[in-house]
Computed example of a mutant assay.
Amino acid sequence: MFDVKERQRVRDQLLASAEEDPGIVGAAITGSDALGAADRWSDIDLAFSVHGRLDEALERWTARIYQDFAAVHHWDLPSGNAVYRVFLLPGWLEVDIAFTPESEFGPLGPAWRTVFGQTSQPSPGQSSDHQHLAGLAWHHALHARVCIERRRWWQAEYWISAVRDHVLTLACLRLGHPASHAKGTHLLPQELTTPLEKTLVRSLDEAELRRALEAATASLATELAHTAPALATRLRPMLTELTSPD
């Protein structure tokens, strides 16, 4: 595994290369390092302000990272007009670079430290689409029940776990914690997370799957009572029906 000195060397070299690239007009350190909270296992998180075509910058920088750092693999996570390109380097060092149009380069939250370049004024925060998340949650609960009836045990487990994931995301959003990829779940109060332990599937036995699904739908109804009370009132009897014997 990589060590902290190697991570620092790679990060500094990437930033130095960005300053020398006329197509990169700004750079920032993001993630835990921007907050002074990086630890032994943190990856490298950067954001680049791109002057010109984003695809050309992506192609140029991908070639550079493979050549200079012997990258093993990469993949993309689009976000609006930006593209987060995620690289895997030897030693399991992950490098995440957000390639952002120049006009949109700026902090989306507190985890940001500008290294060079001009940042745009942050846009007013948009409220997260709780209705969308709630819809995904009830959809997953329904499909978990269907999979149990079809005796598709692994698929049922997948959907039950997905219900729990969306309950955690809704709770993080409600309490102002980071919501993506469970980054804020350790900040949730114990009285909220303890009941969710019952949603963990302990085996692929049918009775166990039904028990976990019932716990997941109960947790969903409880969270929706805080997040979307009117929807919770409408959904609660249907969620009860979903986990009741026919």
Score class of each variant (00 low, 15 high):
residue 5 K to D: 15
residue 6 E to W: 09
residue 9 R to I: 12
residue 21 D to R: 01
residue 23 G to V: 02
residue 24 I to E: 02
residue 26 G to D: 03
residue 26 G to I: 01
residue 27 A to P: 00
residue 28 A to L: 05
residue 29 I to T: 02
residue 33 D to R: 02
residue 34 A to T: 07
residue 35 L to N: 02
residue 36 G to W: 03
residue 37 A to K: 11
residue 38 A to C: 09
residue 38 A to M: 12
residue 39 D to G: 12
residue 44 I to N: 01
residue 47 A to M: 08
residue 49 S to W: 00
residue 50 V to F: 00
residue 53 R to M: 12
residue 54 L to K: 06
residue 59 E to I: 12
residue 59 E to A: 15
residue 59 E to W: 11
residue 61 W to Y: 06
residue 61 W to V: 02
residue 62 T to D: 14
residue 62 T to R: 13
residue 64 R to K: 14
residue 64 R to A: 10
residue 67 Q to S: 13
residue 67 Q to E: 13
residue 70 A to E: 12
residue 71 A to H: 03
residue 71 A to D: 03
residue 81 N to I: 07
residue 83 V to E: 01
residue 88 L to S: 11
residue 91 G to P: 09
residue 105 F to R: 01
residue 109 G to D: 06
residue 110 P to N: 10
residue 110 P to S: 08
residue 112 W to M: 04
residue 115 V to I: 14
residue 116 F to Y: 08
residue 121 Q to E: 12
residue 122 P to I: 07
residue 125 G to I: 11
residue 125 G to D: 08
residue 128 S to R: 11
residue 128 S to C: 13
residue 131 Q to V: 09
residue 132 H to M: 14
residue 136 L to Q: 13
residue 137 A to M: 10
residue 141 A to C: 07
residue 143 H to Y: 07
residue 144 A to E: 00
residue 146 V to M: 03
residue 146 V to I: 14
residue 147 C to T: 02
residue 147 C to L: 06
residue 147 C to Y: 02
residue 150 R to Q: 03
residue 152 R to M: 13
residue 153 W to I: 07
residue 156 A to N: 03
residue 159 W to H: 14
residue 164 R to F: 05
residue 167 V to G: 02
residue 170 L to C: 10
residue 170 L to E: 02
residue 172 C to L: 03
residue 173 L to E: 09
residue 177 H to I: 04
residue 177 H to T: 11
residue 178 P to I: 05
residue 179 A to I: 05
residue 180 S to T: 10
residue 182 A to E: 14
residue 186 H to G: 12
residue 188 L to N: 09
residue 190 Q to D: 14
residue 199 T to F: 04
residue 202 R to S: 06
residue 205 D to Y: 06
residue 207 A to L: 15
residue 214 E to T: 15
residue 215 A to G: 07
residue 219 S to A: 15
residue 226 H to F: 15
residue 226 H to I: 15
residue 230 A to I: 11
residue 235 L to N: 00
residue 235 L to V: 11
residue 246 D to C: 13
